[in-house]
Design a protein around this nucleic acid. Sequence first.
RNA 1: GCGAAAGUGGCGGAACUGGUAGACGCGCAAGAUUUAGGAUCUUGUGGCCUGACGGCCGUGGGGGUUCGAGUCCCCCCUUUCGCACCA
Length: 937
Amino acid sequence: MSGYDFRAIEARWQRRWDERRTFRTPGPGDEGFRPDQPKFYVLDMFPYPSGAGLHVGHPLGYIATDIVARYKRMRGFNVLHPMGFDAFGLPAEQYAIEHGIHPRETTLRNIETMRRQLRALGLSYDWEREIATIDPRYYRWTQWIFLQMFGSWFDPEARRARPIAELEQELAAGRRWVAEDGALVAPGTEGARPWTDLDETARRDVLDAHRLAYVDEVPVNWCPALGTVLANEEVTAEGRSERGNHPVYRRPLRQWMLRITAYAERLLEDLDLVDWPEPIKLLQRNWIGRSEGAEAVFRIDGSGEPVRVFTTRPDTLFGATYMVLAPEHPLVESITAPERREAVEAYRREAARKSDVARQAETKAKTGVDTGARAINPVSGERIPVFIADYVLMGYGTGAIMAVPAHDQRDFEFALAFGLPLRAVVRPDEAWLRAHAPDALADAGADALAEAYVRDPAAFGEAFTGEGVAIQSTRDDLALDGLPTPEAKARITEWLERRGLGRGRVQYKLRDWLFSRQRYWGEPFPILWDESGRPVPVPEDELPVELPEMDDFRPSASDDPTPALARAPESWRIVRRGDRVLRRELNTMPQWAGSCWYYLRFIDPRNDERLVDPERERYFMQPRGVDLYVGGVEHAVLHLLYARFWHKVLYDLGHVSTPEPFGRLFNQGYILAWAYVDERGVYVPADEVEERDGRFWWKGREVTRSYGKMGKSLKNAVSPDEMCAEYGCDTLRLYEMFMGPLEASKPWNTRDVVGVHRFLQRLWRNLVDERGGGLRVTDEPADDALRRLLHRTIAQVTESMERLGFNTAIARLIELNNALVPLERVPREVAEPLVLMLAPMAPHIAEELWERLGHDSSLAFAPWPEADPRWLAVESVELVVQVLGKVRGKVEVPAGADERTAREAAQAHPNVARHLEGRTVRKVIYVPGKLINFVAS
RNA sequence: GCGAAAGUGGCGGAACUGGUAGACGCGCAAGAUUUAGGAUCUUGUGGCCUGACGGCCGUGGGGGUUCGAGUCCCCCCUUUCGCACCA
């Protein structure tokens, strides 16, 4: 018996790779490291070990990266291809709570299962580099990075993070003063004070307020069911938690924040440095949401209280006929007129009940309340009403707007609902006017239309928000009339600045990252609180701050946010330093923390002296970071933005050598599968559904077929374990890659798996005599045609591998293999390259055949076959002959045939001659090697 | 509403800078082999017309550029994804 016994072969080779440490990757300083070798860092997105185990959709990306890793090794690269586990966070903890087991236990068990499943796929990870975020030796450095952020500030002039001590020095030296609101300003600025005027408390306040990690009271998304606060990114558009779909409420809370907004500009700009899919870059750009405009100051009539607004259209300032503050705006309290107080309070209460997101999800009908206050338009001098309305968000800009109803759709709707005046200050183009003119003006001329618009912009049905020419925007010392919008913007911004009434400003949608969670299963903060309520960093040599052992680790599901660690033993919570009593920070870090920097730790996973050794970091990260990073689009903003942010901080502080972590990113598609619902709309197990006459039945009941992402919720998951058992993991690997392009989402079809399985069996039979078990391979040379096919295949497969086109690479290998079927004996010069080319995709069978071909070392480092150009050239080609663009025949001509030869051969073709009969050839198009086209009358 | 990606046989999908549409695989059909089933091998397989040679149509729909369009341009339809009062 010498058939293709994949079970024995796969087990044997997986064991050998392990025993021989085949995929150990030496780095600088390690035994066996070769500094002359180029590196290639290929990385999968950090998986989260869930309790359910893997389904065949999960390893799609892992198989792809493994193929790249194996291919690159054969091309002489020192390949870093590690794997680890992101294991802190909500899902693990939820799972643990549901099963009443400590999260550490369930997490370790899940990791175990996942590691076993991954190993069964024959992935060539360097398992000696495995890391897990829950390991204190790992999270020690997560905490260390947090301390780096706590110990630095962002210098807006240098546009980078610097140690906070340097800020202190600059302040002490008088190079910067501190403004009333705590901002750093130039010495001598009005209202600002020098360092020497500040007492110790004030100084600490200033420094603490400038740290990259700082504490602030902010409105948060509080999820009582999960017992924790969530980041904006973790809340859905419906105002529910992304995990678990529980309601989320807004409330103010003192929280740790990370100053990611300081990096908004660089996060945006540096997208130009990376090779990422354009849609992902766009997603990040939109998330950062940069907009240019100006800030302007309006003063409240009477009190003179300044209200700052942000606008992208400062050119429409003359058209501001009212103002709106967000309901939570701090000035509402003081400016509201006594007789309006009750209505204003009622509206504010109503708004506070709803979360930011829930508020936005509701109808677009505009609501609001007049505060009774009046403000002065700084350019027109008009007294205008001040409203509060929930269409203005406290979290964006200044939380207050100038409303220009003629040129902003939201303001337009609000003005109509509340009977507020509109004032046109931009003249629209004629096309817009005509398209929006009321019926009565259907025949009006251009001037009449423009006049009508100025008289009554509301009659045109919607706000004109485009660019145009400024009108009705002139006063004694400022003339905008006649200026196109961009110039009008520049002119008025300059005027505002000169008069101290405002300045140009860039605004981002991106908010600072809310970094505290109240859950147990996360990294503790390396922070202590002193008697006066100030944060004190835990000294580096005391790291890690280990998570205390607790029997009751459940979150406190309540309306009042209480960290789970509040119930930790007092011996953990209270730290005595001499006669000082310090309390530990009780929040933990969010899910994303550990995955923000894991790619760095893989480079030097056992280093207890530093985060990563600089020499190793440079070797594996230069020049553009991770060379290939593969994962799903779902991480387009959160993980990828957070990781870039941390990386830039580490870069600024000199701990890493590249400005970006991931040079090339690739998003794999999803694996979809049929799913079935019964008459109640409930999903039934897809593997128990039977098909009869095009209809679907489950336990005798008819069910309807639907379609979706493979997973637990649709009950349509297929386990890799079943596939490996039935067909072997080489077949599974091959099938997943053969399904279609890596980036596409495509349907799983177990029935189709036999196709690639047959290919492997046929390959086996081509090289191994099934009866005797001997080789069917001969040292005699291949004939010319086969040799040509071989070299063409090498060229095509190589090209496919370079662009991750594994589906087409496999197709070419199948073709080559099919060509060997009729042969009595297979020439070694074909068999060996075929096995080598298959090796990255189906490594076990390839190793086995390689050994049987007489090689005693693994093919993992065997050189990739090279196509010989001599055998790529052909001496004759089949030329397509067209008449008037339609194919009428094919003729064989010598490869370099000139036009006359080709033309004569073509015209001699009977069918071509027939079509040319009675016509005059006007023109001949000849594409050498491809076709010849006769253009005839 | 705004933005992005994608629509090719019964199915998954190929097709480089415009140059034979449907590679490769599944499925299906016929034949060979086999006691049978399975496996294997051979041949065929976009639709329509034709005994055959061959012809006509065909890449979501409609127009255009070109000797020639799945590929380039314009309009429209459908699906999926992301964002969604961001001033």
